[in-house]
């Protein structure tokens, strides 16, 4: 008995976590998948009825808005954060004296809760008292900036706050990448008189492709899970103009009492995340084994 224990102690130690992950991750996903195929409303029902919830979901105008918003927000948030992050990383890479301080300043928003970020930007973009009033006070009477209450523009207000929060993080990733490029190659190129911008565009940036991929994955993941930022900044409004799949799911689960819709929208979210993350993780894990 003691010998058996001795031999199996590593497995026994790992077992509780393994069981927890099996039940609370994979088991729960299975439960949600199951309920998404039923007629559940306020309480779960367990008779499989097929894809009716998904039919309802894709027929719902509110879900349509949420998916469109996800694409608009996701595309802009990812593109602008990457461009800004790359620009800042390259500028910081020019042997800047105050690099440490600047890096700290660019990255601190990442330590904040999205609720704090949303609260701050909601106030800054407040039409009556925020930037709008300030710029008008400077003498530009016709200046108008009311994106947070404009149904067509509110999603862009969320992009601004999101980029503010995440771009410093992308900068840190890229800066680490720039620093890991082989110094010798860069030196050789300089000796050959190749202009700096060519060195970046032809040598350094192409060698950083894995980091672009990582940054993309992280940002895409953040975009799909974005919930707090929308809740704090616009509450999904005006109306449901800034709903994202995450806020739609939450509304169905906790205020509308429509479990079937909540489950099916959560499953669609997971499908989107997995479509992006699984190929990436798979290649990462394989690369490690080789």
């Amino acid at each position: 008995m003691a010998a058996w224990l001795e031999r199996n102690v590593p497995k026994l130690v790992l077992a509780p976590s393994f069981v927890a992950v099996l039940v609370f991750v994979y088991g729960f996903i299975a439960w949600t998948a199951w309920v998404s195929m039923t007629r559940s409303r306020l309480l779960p029902k367990y008779e499989i009825e097929g894809f009716i919830q998904y039919d309802r979901l894709f027929a719902a105008p509110r879900w349509d808005t949420a998916i469109n918003n996800l694409f608009v927000f996701g595309a802009l948030f990812i593109a602008v954060s990457m461009l800004l992050g790359l620009l800042l990383a390259i500028l910081l890479d020019q042997k800047i004296r105050a690099e440490g301080a600047l890096r700290t300043i660019y990255l601190y928003p990442m330590a904040l809760s999205m609720i704090v970020t949303g609260t701050a930007w909601k106030w800054i973009m407040n039409p009556g008292l925020g930037i709008e009033a300030t710029v008008r006070g400077w003498g530009f009477e016709g200046f108008s900036f009311d994106w947070v209450i404009d149904p067509d523009m509110a999603i862009y207000a969320i992009v601004i706050a999101g980029v503010w929060q995440a771009s410093g993080f992308v900068m840190a990733l890229f800066l680490a990448g720039l620093r890991s490029v082989d110094e010798e190659i860069v030196k050789a190129a300089r000796v050959d008189g190749i202009p700096t911008w060519r060195i970046y565009s032809a040598i350094i940036i192409p060698s950083m492709m894995p980091i672009f991929l990582s940054a993309f994955i992280v940002l895409a993941h953040l975009a799909i899970k974005s919930f707090d930022l929308v809740i704090a900044l616009t509450g999904g409004g005006p109306g449901y103009a800034t709903d994202l799949p995450a806020t739609y799911m939450y509304a169905m689960a906790f205020s509308r009492g429509d479990l079937g819709q909540a489950a099916s929208s959560a499953m669609v979210m997971m499908a989107v995340v997995f479509a992006i993350v699984v190929p990436y993780l798979y290649s990462e894990l394989r690369a490690k084994r080789d």
């Binding site: 439960w31 997971m270 995340v273």
Partner: peptide, 10 residues
């Protein structure tokens, strides 16, 4: 990497 929405209900 799962979106936590998928485990909220259970």
């Amino acid at each position: 990497f799962i979106p936590f929405q998928v485990v909220l209900l259970p």
